[in-house]
Design a protein around this nucleic acid. Sequence first.
DNA 1: TCAGTAAAATAACAAGTGTTATAAACTTGC
DNA 2: GCAAGTTTATAACACTTGTTATTTTACTGA
Lengths: 207, 207
Amino acid sequence: MAAQAPASGFRKRRRRMKGMVHMARKETITMQMILDTAFAMTREEGFANVTARKVAARAGCSTQPIFRVYKNMDELWQAVYEKAAAFFGDYYSLYPRMGRAPFVNLGMAYIAFAREEEHLFELLFVNSVPGKKSMYELLNGGEGNVVYEINLAKAAGCADPGDLFMKMWLFIHGAACMTLTGDYDLSDVQTLELLERSYQAFASGKQ
Amino acid sequence: MAAQAPASGFRKRRRRMKGMVHMARKETITMQMILDTAFAMTREEGFANVTARKVAARAGCSTQPIFRVYKNMDELWQAVYEKAAAFFGDYYSLYPRMGRAPFVNLGMAYIAFAREEEHLFELLFVNSVPGKKSMYELLNGGEGNVVYEINLAKAAGCADPGDLFMKMWLFIHGAACMTLTGDYDLSDVQTLELLERSYQAFASGKQ
DNA sequence: TCAGTAAAATAACAAGTGTTATAAACTTGC
DNA sequence: GCAAGTTTATAACACTTGTTATTTTACTGA
């Protein structure tokens, strides 16, 4: 029978092979389900609440399936972080473009993200988790968002677009962080005007 | 003898009174020692590491003295928070005045505090602890620091000093927060120049 | 039907948390 | 020295954490 050990002896012990006598039982709780659950919990309750038992309870299973698909919780947390980073990328690419000045659209999306997804924002841009990506890397998001905006500023005649980006971003990041602590609470319209005017102020100043 | 129960019966049971027969044993671990230890740990390792057993270990005692002088850990944490707020007030009042434009001195001290006392900054200005003071309250520090700076701007001919303060502070808070995540790393001299120029940009723009 | 296997549930372990009961050690006034 | 009271240390309780050993359940191919 096919289940017998083959004549050649290269097979490691218990190696799974095609055509074995008995096939695996269908998995009911997939890696995707675990990750989605943990990510949803991060969004709603924050990263610190993503514990093995709480994820299991919300997924409607025991903790065992988690450790079947992830080696340990660190691996799951890392996966949640990656998913959050990708989520921000999607959020930005879908955010309506309201501003005309460089960095303003990116900034509007960033501040709105902080308001609407405070726990994800905290995870990505405030806390210091191991394996953290830099802010620049997260903003660029594989599509060169920052590079695009900097080129926009260059095309608009800005002599030092990198310096301008830094100034704009200090401003924008400050607003986003204050949103979390309740110290900033302007509407999108007010924020848009603020950013546009700040750009003008920074761009027209001496370099 | 004075230890006898007084004729009047208002005394609650076990009420401590002056002139009792036996006086208390001298306390060896004081509330001040516990608080100082917990505060030092917050500075060095962060608020999350202030646990009963760790404080006790560092103070060289068991956990019992902590719960003699504080009802529970929440009370100690609250006291640490208050001490941190006072510490920032002292830090600001002792910080050398480098800038001339309004809000610049306050901002320089704020950014330096974020760099030098990252865990205290996190506790005071980033995290959302229960009983948190507002940023404005912390900055004012009982001495009207913000009010003073706003008057400075008003005296300098600024039409809307409140708006100017908001803009400057978004900028400053952004720099301080990015310091924690490693996304901002300019020297004091560079920061001073940045703040002075930003003030000029904001102040000369249209209101 | 029935092995055989994989997946899941249960239960446990070892650490760590706040908190408290108990007992020992210490100070103090007589 | 002694009795009384305070302070401290020890140990324990109840809970939560990550992780793993063990048992049970469910599926699959023959």
